[in-house]
Design a protein around this nucleic acid. Sequence first.
DNA 1: TGAATAGTGTCTATGAGACAGTATGTA
DNA 2: TACATACTGTCTCATAGACACTATTCA
Lengths: 242, 242
Amino acid sequence: MTNNNFTDNENLLRMPVAVDLVVLTLREDTLCALAIRRGIKPFKGHWALPGGFVRPGESLEAAAHRELAEETGIVAGQIGHIEQLATFSAPRRDPREQIISVAYLAFVPNLPEPTAGGDANDARITAIDELMDESGKLAFDHDEILRVAIERTRAKLEYTSLATAFCNERFTINELRRVYEIVWGTTLDAANFHRKVTKTPGFVIATAETTRGDGSGRPAQLYSQGPAHMLHPALLRGNTQG
Amino acid sequence: MTNNNFTDNENLLRMPVAVDLVVLTLREDTLCALAIRRGIKPFKGHWALPGGFVRPGESLEAAAHRELAEETGIVAGQIGHIEQLATFSAPRRDPREQIISVAYLAFVPNLPEPTAGGDANDARITAIDELMDESGKLAFDHDEILRVAIERTRAKLEYTSLATAFCNERFTINELRRVYEIVWGTTLDAANFHRKVTKTPGFVIATAETTRGDGSGRPAQLYSQGPAHMLHPALLRGNTQG
DNA sequence: TGAATAGTGTCTATGAGACAGTATGTA
DNA sequence: TACATACTGTCTCATAGACACTATTCA
């Protein structure tokens, strides 16, 4: 199937196709991203987003999952949500040749310390504030990819139910509120948030369970993710403030 | 710069990189997309989205603009807005070999009848209802690309000021309202819409001009696009109904 | 009992939607 | 004047935000 109709066109540019992953999780009240230390050139020894090249016959989604498993040990079942973010292919973004990179954005609850593998010497969960505090900290144009990812994440929490992708299967309303507060960097009124979330159709479903009274305070109702993907009405930033 | 670090890796897949364009415009109260009739194999003679292959050293954006000009005669100055939509690269989306296609979404006001060129035998502005009424009408996976484009367009009108990208430089509030009505397929209350748009900071700017009294009715104030990109508050679908 | 966290009630301000009414042009 | 389209006023209802209050646990 390769090299049949195109062989007469010597001008046709073929590029290696990479997938890069922004894997976000919450850890100790901080929004964190998964970063690997590159074990191969170029940018060997630098921090970068996990990722790698697409193989023949492989879909982009499959490549994203494979690279994530290879470089960090995270498998599909641990991923709360994954979506295509954007595609980057500036002619000089890679010093070797023009490479097209399709970035994916994933949310993972309770990410365990990753185990490096593949082309990665090390894999760490790092606060995004630290990764973004100066440009050039990440290899290639991964600073830019991370920036776009955070922007998308903040926007999507407003009008989708994706905040639940950062939570375990069972979660309390206050845990869900912490997701919003951490991602947006705001504080929200707990009372109004509670009412809004439980009244938005399909957002969360109350289960029969509550948390164990763990030392002090009233046990909290446990909820699971509802069927809604889009929220009506949306949970807008700048509202529900405390 | 080509074939230096990679020549030792025989397994590295290189793909031709295409850009495909969904160019939307309003014509006779209908949302329309630009389609070309393919002049080359595969799918020769079929309708498709305009697009083509990225050339060496060319950015995706540059390739999008070049293909649009080559195949339809539309130049950058006529484009109201353009953004990256999504990337498609299913292994069998092209019968020749695996090709990665980065789709772009553009809004154009008052699109003139396009002039076919390049690899296109014909270029037409066609109602999206007609293009989407049966699957398989468009070549490759262009049905799917168009579907994603329309979905994105409808969503973006809600929370961005992009509706103005379908209008001329000077427009009336009622012309802007027609954009929403046509794209969403709804009717909106003219009075409430007027108030909402003019009160949303940065959406539109009143000019000193009005329309000429063209036969009947009070002349309308002319507005130009404001500096805002995101709307606060948003113009939600299902509201402002008449 | 008090401390702590979960959850409800309720007041106020704002904005959406319905629709009546006013303004300004042409014939 | 009649008519058509542009625009404003105003009423009602829903929701956001503030914050006081009640509920349920543990020590």
